[in-house]
Amino acid sequence: MSSSQNPGNLSDTRGNHGGIAFFRLLIRCCGRRVACGFAWFIAFFYALLDGRAFASSRPYLSSRFPEATWLGLRIHFFRLIVSQGQAMIVAYWLQIGNTLPVTTRNNAVARAELEKSDRGLILLISHVGCWQASLRHLLSFSRPINLLIQANRNTGTAALLAGSNIRIIDNSSEFGGLLECVSALERGEIVCIMGDRHASQSESSLTMDVLGNTREIPSSPWYLAAKCNVPILPLFVLLKPPLASAVEYRFVEPMKVKTQNNRRPSNSDFLPAVRQYARELEDIATESPYQVFHYSLQKGTKNG
């Protein structure tokens, strides 16, 4: 998918095979710390020359830093590129079998949910920090885990999962992989779904106010939670700046979406929970502005 099809996705606008191969070699030869330091140097050129990526992130940066001048926004963009580069480095670092120091927030509540094997659970991940690192954390639980992603765009993630108890459900397959998600939830398994990105252009969404911008939040995770009567556990995976030297797993209190009897869920059923998720995204953007990498911004009618 090109950036014109999905203008809110920062990662669609950069990276080439040569650059990725260079960084992989650097990581293997010199380690994560050196590679993360070098990302500051490389990001400088992207910040200067990648106008398309700057344009795609500008609505977010303008709302997050409303007082910033054009030059100020460019500097914030530079920091954003550094941070995203480091997230990619950490993802590869973990993929090749290394670890990082870990801190957690709300871990006790999350652990209780993650260990309840008698019912399904939706783990709501987001394009914040290094979401791939969440998979490492999940591997420590002896529960079958399903990851709903576009498989052909995440071959590195697939490699990370080889031989593990995590199964990929391809969201470009029939019905966006949602029927496989229902089966998994009914078997009492964990299903990881991106909360901030649509699986397909036709997927329905709710629009929320995040940092003064209207942002689209896909409705399918909330719909599945309502239909399968399972909780949603949001997780944000943040990296410690300036060299991504540690990972923080930040869990949010589990959310429930309820509908009356067998009535079909509607957007109004999801609103309170989705509004809470949007607030969490806003808090992350306020606290760690350079670790938010996907912005499905839209000028349109707001639900909340």
């Binding site: 019905f175 997927e203 409705s219 239909k227």
Partner: peptide
Amino acid sequence: DSLDAVEIVI
């Protein structure tokens, strides 16, 4: 759409 498919299956 896909949400309708979920609804039908359930």
